[in-house]
Structures are given as structure tokens and as C-alpha cells.
């Protein structure tokens, strides 16, 4: 079993004829993903990597069965594209767009919650189950970074994901499923909402979360563990321990405001429920060995 996506998941690509869309569709297929069709308004009938392009999601779904939609759509059109996928009843959506307006993001998340869909992203590299399938863009061909294994990973930090997974692999582990929650202040799906999937996944032994200052997603994971809704080991790496208060460190979500969202608070929350926090990326491997009793 994998989380969110495996080699059998039937994936539609919205924005498949764009430069990024084309390039990463090829790699998604290369990684093992079942891409069934694409959508670009005005481009119906074209073929990309042997897949038929349709004008709209509705037209694609009248011809093929789809479980998940991958969006390579610019941020300003992302809300429309997500709502289009939701309208057709697609329940798994990944958007990699970096720069989705906040007000659009909040509407996207609300709409997803109200129909019970999972929207992953934006501002993420996507989702990967190494050795099986991916939606988004990961250098899956670098084995020292994306080796299949039994550690679940969730991340808010795209640029640190490769670094941390490389440390997990270096320590002798591999990755079961990785979910890129994304670096925006309002991601479509939150860490804690994915934890039950890792809990139920018999191919995942422990979960590593890659978080940072700002927001409350790490604290929510601690609450899940405290409430017994997630019982497997939890290891975290958190960026921004030494970040100055009030400065926005890169990601819009990465700011300490009103004394909330400090890394110190997050560490306390995670450790109070028996989770472990790695001070440096390279300590993650040792902490995983410790929590797994190896």
C-alpha cells in the first residue's frame, strides 16, 4: 500500500502542453505513474507522451477514468483549475504552483474540505511513492535521494526535502511515501490530516516531518499523537531555530507573529508526546534508528 498515489493511480495532467507540464509528464511516466490523459483548453486532440489532450476536465472524464489530477497551471489560474477538477468529482489533486494568492488558497482549501477531497500544495514539489509513482517533480532518478523504503515523509520545505531524504537514505532507510504539503501559509492539506494515512499504511514504520517556524502544523501533529490518532514514531527536522522574530524567512508562512509559531514551541510540543526533533539534518538517521529500536 502507498499513500495518495501508487503505480495504479490513474492521473490526469492539467496544463500538460506547457513546457513544465510536458517535461514533468515525461518524468512522471518514467517514475512509473499511470498518466491517462491531459487537459489544456484549446489543445484537444494533441498527443503528449502518447496521451490524448482534451479541452477540459469534463471532456477528458467523458472518455477516461481518472482518480487524481496533477496541475501544472500558473498560480493565477490555479483556483479555477482546482475548482474544475473538484467539479468533476476528482478527490485527489496536486498543485505545484508557487505564488497562489492567499485568498484563492483559502477558497481552495474550504472547497476541498467541503467535498472531502485532498488538495496537496501549492508551493510544493508534489507527492512521490519512490519506485512506484509521483505527481510533481522530484529527482527520483537520484537513488541516494529517493530510494524506496519504509519511512514516511511530509514536508513544508521543498528545498530541504532532497537534503533530508538523502540523509534518510544514507542512514540505511528509504522512503515509503512523501507528501509535499508545501510552503504557503494556507496549504490545501495540513500535516495532521495526512497522518492517519501513514498510521494505516503497513509499508510505513515511522514518519519524518520537515517543518519550519510559523503556523501550527507541527503542533497539530503532536496533538494527533497525544490523542492516539497516530501511534507510530514521529521524527522532525525544523528550520528556523535561530530566526529573528518578525522577519519573514523566505516562505510567507515562515514568520513568528505574536509570539506564536516559534521553533522552540514546536519542539516542546513534539517532544512532549515522545516525538524526536533533529537539531541538524544529518541527525535524522540516528534518531530514526533510536525510535525504531535499531
Amino acid at each position: 500500500m502507498s499513500i495518495f498515489i501508487d503505480e495504479k493511480t490513474r492521473v490526469l495532467v492539467q496544463g500538460i502542453t506547457g513546457k513544465e507540464g510536458k517535461y514533468w509528464t515525461e518524468h512522471m511516466i518514467g517514475c512509473g505513474t499511470t498518466v491517462v490523459a491531459g487537459v489544456t483548453p484549446g489543445k484537444e486532440g494533441q498527443q503528449i507522451e502518447g496521451r490524448t489532450v482534451y479541452h477540459s476536465v469534463r471532456r477528458a472524464l467523458s472518455k477516461v477514468e481518472v482518480e487524481a489530477s496533477m496541475l501544472f497551471v500558473p498560480p493565477m489560474f490555479t483556483k479555477d483549475a482546482v475548482f474544475e477538477a473538484l467539479d468533476s468529482g476528482i478527490k485527489k489533486i496536486v498543485t505545484v504552483a508557487d505564488g497562489i494568492p492567499l485568498h484563492d488558497a483559502i477558497q481552495i482549501r474550504r472547497a476541498a474540505l467541503s467535498v472531502g477531497a485532498l488538495v496537496i500544495g501549492g508551493n510544493t514539489s508534489g507527492v512521490i511513492s519512490p519506485g512506484k509513482a509521483m505527481m510533481g517533480f522530484f529527482p527520483y532518478w537520484i537513488e541516494r535521494v529517493y530510494k524506496p523504503g519504509r519511512i514516511g515523509v511530509m514536508t513544508r520545505i521543498g528545498s530541504l526535502t532532497n537534503e533530508v531524504t538523502a540523509m534518510i537514505v544514507k542512514a540505511g532507510f528509504g522512503v515509503s511515501s512523501l507528501i509535499g504539503i508545501g510552503g504557503d501559509p494556507v496549504p490545501g492539506t495540513r500535516f495532521a490530516e495526512m497522518l492517519p494515512f501513514y498510521e494505516a499504511d503497513d509499508k510505513t514504520d515511522a514518519v519524518v516531518i520537515i517543518g519550519e517556524l510559523g503556523g501550527s502544523m507541527e503542533e497539530e501533529c503532536a496533538e494527533m499523537k497525544r490523542d492516539g490518532l497516530y501511534t507510530k514514531p514521529l521524527v522532525a527536522f525544523l528550520g528556523g531555530r535561530t530566526a529573528p522574530v518578525g522577519k519573514r524567512m523566505g516562505h510567507a508562512g515562515a514568520i513568528v507573529s505574536g509570539g506564536k509559531g516559534t521553533v522552540k514551541d514546536k519542539i516542546e510540543a513534539i517532544e512532549s508526546v515522545g516525538g524526536k526533533v533533529a537539531e541538524r539534518p544529518r541527525f535524522i538517521g540516528d534518531l530514526l534508528k533510536e525510535v525504531l529500536g535499531l
Binding site: 530541504l160 517556524l213 535561530t242 530566526a243 524567512m249 541538524r280
Partner: peptide, 23 residues
């Protein structure tokens, strides 16, 4: 490259006793 990696490098420099001129 990347917000989170830059933030982490910023942390690591502080751990090692260095100081940052600019992010």
C-alpha cells in the same frame, strides 16, 4: 536556493558560531 534550505543554512551557521551578513 530555496527558502527552507536558506533558513536551515542560517541556523547551521549560528550553531557553528558564525554570523550571517545577508540572507
Amino acid at each position: 536556493a530555496g527558502a527552507g534550505l536558506t533558513t536551515t543554512v542560517y541556523d547551521l551557521i549560528n550553531y557553528e558560531g558564525g554570523t550571517v551578513a545577508n540572507y
